[in-house]
């Protein structure tokens, strides 16, 4: 898999929610190969920041730019966003869910499911499987897509230690190929080398 490395940068991001300032004047440039962990207590605005970076949410001020394209919305297809909602439909099979979310071929999807340990349950409905297996199905997209910017909101949720190790390996490969990854977690990633952006809870 080959990606076109892109730089992700944001300038003077400010977000106000319900009269409370979540963060103000955040600026950062993430060149290809950066791994950034957004840290902070609950309610500090981690998810909001990640959604702003994914162009799902509009900041109150500031800009986000990917590569040379000034309009953030234009470069949306450079982003792979994994939110903390499962992003899989309970009534469809693992394979159907994955095939909808990516434009990869069926062979690549099979391979991806093998990587996340879902081999043999491609045709099982998501609601028949455990929560962790559902999460794995969402994570399988990391093995299908060839996009440079990954935004992962709590990717470790409901995963067992084995899967955490596999996921960390995949993130390392992506960063090694020149990708950018921004993630949040309350666990301690042991196998990753990352910068940290600390959001404080302003009360």
């Amino acid at each position: 898999m080959l990606i076109k490395p892109k730089t992700l940068q944001f300038q003077n991001l400010t977000c106000v929610r319900d009269d409370r300032c979540l963060f103000a004047d955040l600026s950062m440039t993430l060149p290809p190969g950066s791994l950034l962990r957004v840290a902070g207590p609950n309610g500090a605005g981690k998810t909001t920041l990640l959604r702003i970076l994914s162009a799902l949410h509009e900041p109150d001020s500031g800009t986000v730019q990917i590569g040379e394209v000034e309009d953030h919305l234009e470069s949306r297809q450079e982003i792979l966003y994994l939110g903390h909602k499962p992003q899989v439909c309970q009534d469809l099979s693992i394979m159907d869910n994955l095939m909808f979310l990516t434009d990869a071929s069926q062979a690549i999807c099979f391979q991806a499911l093998q990587f996340v340990g879902l081999k043999g349950c491609e045709d099982s409905l998501v609601r028949e499987l455990s929560q962790g297996q559902g999460r794995r199905c969402g994570l399988a997209r990391l093995w299908c897509h060839e996009v440079p910017i990954w935004i992962l909101d709590e990717p470790y949720t409901a995963l067992d230690p084995g899967m955490v190790a596999i996921l960390e390996d995949r993130i390392n490969i992506h960063v090694g190929e020149g990708g950018v990854c921004v993630f949040t977690t309350h666990q301690n990633p042991t196998n990753l080398r990352f910068e940290t952006l600390e959001l404080a809870r302003v009360s």
Binding site: S54, A55, R76, I79, Y81, G83, K85, P86, Q87, Q90
Partner: peptide
């Protein structure tokens, strides 16, 4: 609710 809808925005 499942969060599939927000993925629509990433389709080209």
């Amino acid at each position: 609710v499942d969060g599939v809808l927000e993925q629509w925005l990433f389709f080209n």
